[in-house]
Design a protein around this nucleic acid. Structure first.
Lengths: 219, 219
DNA sequence: ACGACAACTGTCAGGCCATGACAGTTTGGC
DNA sequence: GCCAAACTGTCATGGCCTGACAGTTGTCGT
């Protein structure tokens, strides 16, 4: 790797000595300071230098913890996604794929909204607002999601007992799941859904997908 | 708008005098030069200054034609999307939504591959390679697609004769279409599909979506 | 403890992207 | 021809991100 890619992995690995603890603290402090500033003045108006200053480290150091300013935001998406994969593994084996996906996705999302994981629900809203207001964040998020979709595809293929390198169906299922997230976010952001919770919208979209989407044209 | 946002619209508007013609020529020359450089040294390794120099304009002028380096690439996606909307409008009214979407999307994509529109098919491949190699391009593309999905949603709602501000189904259908594109690209990029054409993969994915995705788990 | 070694951080320098301000040139309309 | 609008170039600036190098701190073996 590059000579500067020292820290980028292992946000876990606790109790492994003072150094690990310090790293962990610094990272958390950076996330904390960043979100405080984001909430106060918005993502774009917040500079990396300000974030670093708030934690009293150099901006150079910031970039040793996060590859970009956007990556701070994606920290949560990362954890969320990991949670989905984990819960999906725990679903009963016989359950149809989309049902399992719906239940895990909705469950994880709802947990976020309720502030599980140590997620601050307020921060969760903040992230969603930044997606709307800062194209860079949205872009990175989508990009990140696209990359993670590959992992999900593998897991689904395993669950279906098929080979993802010859069968397109797991790709479709994984795509449908991310599509559900995005459509839900879309509709939710556009205010289509009234005051429903994001997780409820997601559940509804999943149901629609399961019912089939061969909609007739006007008539 | 900002005082620098003079040109950003109307890539059309021909025969309207020397000025319009010059603008059009400059824009096309920039695109041409940019892609030549992209193909030669890659997206990231190509600087805006080089592109501008190749056309003998200042980099400042480049940014009056394109809001970012990535936008040069998205020019084509833009046209592609416009073509999809146009063809979709021309589909027979009674046709089921997903069928209409499949036929138009596949048709447009195939036209691109065959070099219609004045698209250079080789360039079309170049774009797809850049998506894989340059995260920035992929991110912007996804972002752009997400934004355009709103337009598609409206059109679909109209075709279904429902209100997109209360009915989630058009959102789902539009999401499914973009999901199809992305899954197809994924699978195609991963080499899952052998030597099939991208458009064929897309058609297959659409078919799978239409058949329903309530896949059973292993058994 | 102590010293060697690795890991982490700060400083410095620099490149690229993107934008505002301003002045000069070209174009179109009258 | 002349004026106003549109377009471009130059200059200056700010923010993001990275490589290089030196200094500091933690770790581990002895």
């Amino acid at each position: 790797m590059t000579p500067t890619a020292a820290v980028h992995e292992t946000p876990r690995a606790d109790h492994q000595g003072r150094r690990e603890r310090k790293k962990r603290r610094t990272r958390e402090a950076l996330v904390e300071a960043a979100f405080e500033l984001f909430q106060e003045k918005g993502f774009d108006a917040t500079t990396v230098e300000e974030i670093a200053d708030a934690v009293d480290v150099s901006s150079r150091t910031f970039f040793r913890y996060f590859a970009s300013k956007e990556e701070v935001v994606l920290t949560f998406q990362e954890e969320q996604f990991a949670a989905v994969l984990e819960e999906l593994l725990a679903r009963p084996a016989g359950e149809p794929v989309m049902t399992a996906l719906r239940k895990t996705c909705v469950s994880v999302l709802r947990a976020c909204e309720d502030g599980a994981f140590g997620f601050d629900p307020e921060r969760f809203v903040c992230i969603q607002e930044m997606m709307e207001s800062s194209p860079a964040v949205l872009g990175r998020s989508l990009e990140h999601g696209q990359k993670k979709q590959a992992d999900l595809t593998r897991l689904i293929a395993q669950r279906m007992g098929v080979d993802p390198s010859t069968d397109l169906r797991p790709h479709v299922a994984a795509g449908a799941a991310t599509c559900a997230f995005r459509s839900a976010f879309d509709a939710w952001a556009m205010g289509v859904t009234g005051d429903k919770r994001f997780s409820d919208v997601l559940a509804e979209i999943f149901r629609l997908l399961e019912e089939g989407i061969n909609y007739p044209s006007k008539g």
